[in-house]
Design a protein around this nucleic acid. Structure first.
Lengths: 340, 340
DNA sequence: TGATAATTTGAAAGCGCTTTGGGAAATCAC
DNA sequence: GTGATTTCCCAAAGCGCTTTCAAATTATCA
């Protein structure tokens, strides 16, 4: 069943049927209803590709992830995309996913733009030497960055959480509790989110006149195993920290394992604050003790990014949107006064 | 730059240029080279939608996930899709993703099929009352099931791992070690993979003449928290198990936390075997003690499913492919003789 | 009532590609 | 040299929609 057949069946022109179905005003209410009813009854579905060709709009958004596992390794991405998918579907957009492979990220963008495969893309996990933005500007492919570039916040649209502020507050909570030796288990610091977290952490230390000691810091893949190993390393060092800031729940998972093994009591011997992206399978509140966290839903961010991107596509000449989300600090049982 | 312009520039017809670019034989080698070179030089990219419209093939595969979180909750899916994406891109296919939202899974399939949006779909996580297969058969939309339906293995194409065999062997390992009270922490048993695992487990118990005790079994969401809670429940019950079979690494993560808390030594007081999908962020070998696992890479399965689906699309009349993968049992330090 | 405006419908062009059905030129057999 | 193949290329149709431009119908008003 295609438009032509439907039109013939209704004894109307394709034009009218198309208009009726797409909500154009130049069609009588009676006709519109008749067309709508028949289309539904016969199960007519417009051919997506024909529509795209005719309108020149892809009605699709692209998500491209690099082939090296550094980002994919983190299960965050599924929640992020899930949050967005809702939004797209509601607006009649498809979600295109591309993960790794031989073709590098840049040439995928190029292919997307030049072949008209998508109307826009979401840029994930910006890093320090990120060249994606420049390319996308060049290609005139609308995009929105989840996160921020380092150094500049203008000239592109973004949505980010206040990583720096969150970690600053978290660190301050610990210093206020009397901790003066606080470790940091962070993501790879060539990713701006991780860098910002470190900056917030260092800033809070400076505020209190405390030293920043690289010996009790870690930056790398946020796996359970790294959480375990690094926590062990830190806690077995000569001057072990009494507080730990941890950038992801997976790192925490390993960290807690290490602490248990060392016989250290969380919230007493050592205070823990983790960043919680709200992943459904690893709940900070369900731990014992319940974790103090800086919390921000990655799924909600995914949805909002999607909305902003669609707005941008509708109105390419408008202001470049940007949003900075504050992060909740939720104090639970894993933080307490520094041991004396 | 479109085909017409490229053709004019080359002083050739669109026909010839199209054929040269797509590798048809009716074009001279010299011409083909000239066309290819110019196309590359000018950065010509065929418009994907026009091609789809002309060929009637979408060159896209759909992945649709239900809106309830039961599947999405598990980060497996990202690795599964990542494995597939490689394959698709190499063959010029896009990956379409749809997650939840108002529209239910079934109507997404319908839309995909009737609107020609995709050439095929991958069906994930089949469950007992699964109606997707019937619908897809009806819609004549090629598909492949990752997993199996309950009761029948013919009439549809599938790729599955031998869940039943894996858990049977794992259970046998424990019974051979002298365990006769073995707990099971499983996924939701309306999902066939989980059901099969339980069947393998029960079968092995029967083989040894051991009773199947529902009191030391759990079926539900595979979250860290459930792993923790259920392990606590089991180990605090009157007749606590000396062995534990666990369906996912996330459950294990919680289980180990509970065991540490209870002061039970893994591999001695209690033996652990987990199913490991090869997720990069939670490594069974890195745990202490290293975990005995039934291991099967979900990423590899994702790739292979993709290949099979593409074959099926190329040759819709061919045999329905199916593959059953055996699962490795890797014995490490978390299993040992039953305590006396 | 006739002129004008507003509403409703249609014919046809066009989006950028693939592919059918030929046709011209080159090659071959004899 | 002729006719039969083979090789290489092209014009034009068509995929299923949207949208422009124009026409037909109905409503409005002096």
């Amino acid at each position: 069943m295609n438009l032509k057949e439907l039109a013939e069946h209704l004894k109307l022109s394709q034009t009218t049927v198309s208009r009726a179905l797409n909500g154009y005003p130049e069609v009588g209410e009676a006709t519109r209803k008749r067309v709508g009813d028949e289309a539904a009854r016969l199960g007519y579905r417009p051919n997506a590709h024909a529509r795209r060709l005719a309108t020149g709009r892809a009605h699709a958004i692209g998500y491209v992830f690099p082939s090296d596992r550094t980002v994919m390794i983190d299960p965050l991405f599924s929640d992020f995309v899930a949050g967005a998918s809702d939004v797209y579907t509601a607006r009649g957009f498809e979600t295109l996913l591309h993960v790794g492979g031989q073709e590098d990220e840049m040439s995928v963008y190029r292919r997307y733009a030049e072949g008209g495969a998508v109307d826009g893309v979401v840029v994930q996990a910006p890093h320090l030497a990120d060249t994606r933005i420049a390319l996308l500007n060049n290609l005139k492919l609308p995009y929105i960055v989840h996160g921020r570039l380092e150094g500049t916040e203008s000239g592109y649209s973004w949505l980010d959480i206040d990583n720096s502020g969150a970690f600053r507050r978290a660190t301050k909570l610990l210093t206020d509790f009397g901790h003066h030796r606080i470790g940091l288990l962070n993501g790879q610091e060539n990713l701006t989110f991780a860098l910002h977290r470190r900056m917030g952490y260092e800033r809070a230390l400076h505020d209190k006149g405390l030293v920043v000691d690289p010996a009790i810091m870690f930056s790398g893949l946020m796996t359970e195993e790294n959480g375990y190993r690094q926590t062990k390393r830190l806690m077995q060092s000569a001057q072990r920290p009494t507080g730990l800031l941890i950038s992801s729940m997976l790192l925490v998972s390993g960290a807690m394992r290490a602490l248990h093994e060392l016989g250290l009591v969380i919230g007493k011997d050592v205070s823990l604050i983790a960043h919680d992206d709200g992943l459904p399978f690893l709940n900070a509140e369900g731990l014992v003790p319940a974790l103090t966290t800086t919390k921000s839903s990655i799924r909600a961010a995914g949805s909002r990014v999607a909305e902003l991107l669609l707005e941008r596509i509708e109105n390419p000449e408008g202001e470049l949107p940007h949003e900075l989300w504050t992060v909740d600090l939720i104090v639970r049982g894993s933080t307490g006064p520094a041991p004396t």
